[in-house]
Design a protein around this nucleic acid. Structure first.
Lengths: 198, 198, 198, 198
DNA sequence: CATGAATGAGACTTCATTCAT
DNA sequence: GATGAATGAAGTCTCATTCAT
């Protein structure tokens, strides 16, 4: 089993992600995955030690995708915290729309299939990257210093993910997605912004 | 299949919840459930039409439990919004600690096993109950009017659940749970409180 | 378990026959039968020692029904062999139309569920009754003497049942049922009638 | 699932036929079949999509067997209609002796497990083959023209199958099987033969 | 007599994984 | 490396039958 992404590794991952997004992890069989990938049953086990090994691989893929999109959006070059947050909101909503089911599965599958350390290692770069940006704006004096950036990232991602999920899962608030985003922006800013009124 | 909660219905539910909490839904078999419940295999199907029918039943149970605990905590009689939120934070953290895995499963199982309408019907009383309390404090002038209570509840529950989950799943912030709760309180209040400083 | 036909005994039999006719014996469960009969699960076993005990009871019912219809048609008072056969053809087609699936099941279930002697005892009155009529016409000189009446009955019933079954099962020959009946009449008469041409 | 008769496909079919012959279709389980075939449980489903898929496969096998035996007997090269019929009687009795229970099951299982069209397609070659032979003798002037060959075949097969079944199922007429065959021959000839006496 | 909740054996089927080619 | 037929354990669910009320 090689982990350095070969062509077939990626094909299996693509197939797996699209199937799990459609039917959930447990309702997706290895044979469906290999069929969609157009490869042979046995070949799967040349690239993944087991079906369960897909979970961290998928998480990795999503984290990388999120960061790539964030950099394409030039989040770290945002002029001010408001613009940055606006971009982050877009990012989280996009990712959630694309990987909704997968993400929820990843949360539920985490503890059973793998060690938590493994998961933390996977998500760490993403968190670190965001913390760094928050720090920038703290230094610039746009954001408060009190909850440290770890917490800020945690809270921000928390509401954003949950809200995006609610938006796409239950299609209530339908059409008002933009209003939700606006409310979120305001809510988070109020929570973290330096009191500029004083 | 009778759904009016009989003694055995509850026994099956107890067994199912504890097992799913331990191993996840798909890794829990009906035979394990009946074994833990001390009943016969066939009896299970007298109370649940299928294994999948457990999901909404569990959700119902949790919602009822949450509301019962909330009422015991007299959340709706809180003197001010700060006390109320403090209580709500406690509530969400407690529920999450007890039902952590189950809740994540419920999110992931929703779309595959049942209609969204069913889920909304189950969760509705809980949301309504909270919205009503938020309204009280809006009327008292303690909370802002702008994001309507639906959104307030959604955001508040969103960060609380996500944060509690993060706390208990990854045991980082360990010991600092109290600090997290304090930060959450402050963050939410800043986001929704009427500017009393002016 | 009483075998002398009580009201409930007949109700179970009615329910069983209609269900088996719809879905076959093995796809019909005792619980479906009691439900259609409007009685309780346990009550079934007061009237039938087991599900398998239905088979001979049903056969009995059909044989009785066939003979009752035959007597109502006054088959034994037919003026000549042609009229008699015409009536018999009608009878077999009617019975087959009403009990099609059941009859085939009875054939297939015979050997597994019960002793052949039991079956012969059930069908015997029917055969005897027909043999007696054939004899009348033999004595009158309308039918040949050579294949004895046992064989005549066997052959006649054989083609009639098979043909009726084919007509109703495969709906080919559709509409031509009358033509089939005419052909059957002619065929059987040619086979058994005394050569009146000489 | 491959249907092109592989070695294992035939092994499963052999095992299934012998078991069903012994105990009937519904009393035969897939595990018994695989056990008798000496293969694994899962392998069965590589060759048959379900247990029900056995039914048409078995029918196909029997039809092919019947035609192969018929050709070996050179039925279509019979010198006259009498010889042909004698051969056909032998054939039907042999087949019925070998596949007695199976054939009855096929009749009863037809409607529940599969579309009638499927069944007709399976049996069609057999009927066509026989019709062609009957036609030969019609053209030679040995058989009457009036009931068309479709009907002739239907009637002939009808009595033969029913009689053979009766012979082997109820073992009455025991020893007299030859007499039955003689009577059948005479009966059918009388029914279809051209009046050569005139 | 009648009831119907409870039982538990057993049926069908799926699927992750292996291994000879 | 790649293949895909074969495996057999395990899962969900049904159902004939019993028995306490």
């Amino acid at each position: 089993m090689k982990k350095d992404r070969s062509e077939k590794y990626e094909e299996f991952l693509d197939a797996a992600i699209s199937l799990i997004e459609e039917k959930g992890f447990d309702n997706t069989s290895v044979s469906q995955i290999v069929q969609r990938a157009g490869l042979a049953q046995g070949t799967f086990y040349l690239y993944f030690s087991s079906k369960a090994a897909l979970a961290p691989a998928i998480a990795e893929r999503i984290v990388e995708d999120a960061m790539a999109r964030g950099e394409k959006k030039k989040l770290n070059q945002a002029e001010n915290s408001k613009d940055f947050l606006r971009g982050l909101i877009e990012l989280v909503f996009e990712i959630t729309e694309d990987y909704q089911q997968i993400i929820t599965f990843l949360y539920s599958g985490m503890s059973y299939y793998h060690s938590l350390e493994k998961w933390e290692a996977i998500y760490d770069p993403y968190y670190q990257w965001l913390e760094k940006i928050f720090e920038q704006f703290q230094k610039k004096g746009e954001l408060r210093k009190k909850p440290d950036t770890t917490i800020m990232v945690q809270f921000t991602l928390g509401i954003l993910e949950q809200s995006a999920e609610t938006c796409y899962l239950f299609k209530r608030n339908n059409g008002d997605v933009d209003k939700i985003k606006k409310d979120l922006l305001e809510f988070i800013l109020k929570g973290f912004e330096e009191n500029t009124t004083a």
